[in-house]
Amino acid sequence: MTFYSFTGAIEQGLVFGLMALGVFITFRVLDFPDLTVDGSLPLGAAVSAVLITKGYNPWFSLGPAMLAGFVAGMITGILTTKLKILHLLASILTMTALYSINIRVMGGRPNLSLINSTTVFDPLRGVVDKLGINPWLTSSILFLFLASVVVIFIIWLLRTEFGQALLATGDNPGMITSLGVNTHFTIVMGVGLSNALVALCGALTAQNQGAAEVGMGVGTIVAGLASIVVGETIFGTRRLTVRIISAVLGSVIYRLAIAVALSVDIFTPSDLKLITTILVIVALCMPRIKDHFRNRGNRSNA
């Protein structure tokens, strides 16, 4: 693996770590499998790209991008809570609708180039160069900073009264309702927050790779799950703080693993989603496989 493919994998791991944190909030905190993310990632990219091409500050464009993601998540939440549509189906509905919306946002095109536009990385590149660091690492440094901020934010949030209510909503909704929490509200807010983070990831990815593209969200949920399960398998699931940090670390390890896989000649980039899916299946089955072998051991001892 070359230096560039290595740093590229770290960079991607960190930026998609933001997405993994979003998926962590729905999948692990709220126990809500949310496929909206496949649509809200390009939504964030589209909103940011459109604003940048219209001449807005690239930093400013991240705000509306996150807001758009938040609203997309809220819609899934409202479909689930108020209209009683199964969460998985509700999120597929929002995701499907977002495909059309994303093309509309980009003015009827399936993609929008940012090649000649200023992004959040351009002013930083000079600063990084002056500090004597390879400017190639600019985006990695920025993503590391942003991922750390979001990790700290989520650790803080989940320790607040509201965050504890979110955790309880995922664990035992009947109990927390009997203690006066409106779970419809916590679900809508939680799924909204999750998709805001995913949209932020989409906006930054678009700026980093120089284009927003309607198909860039395909497989987001699978990559997010892969990051979480890789993190949990390596760093354990005992403490919540550790689990939050390991979602980002899992994302980095996952991207590194992909880079290694792609450096082997038999695989092409289009095999990526197949490899990821197999990885997720294995990781999700791991506890059961372990149990199976443990029980066999017990039986032979007896």
Binding site: L157, T160, E161, G163, Q164, L179, V181
Partner: peptide, 14 residues
């Protein structure tokens, strides 16, 4: 969680 039954839950410590 129980000691906050029926109270608004904000961003103070859980």
């Amino acid at each position: 969680l129980a000691v906050r039954r029926g109270r608004r839950r904000g961003f103070r410590k859980g």
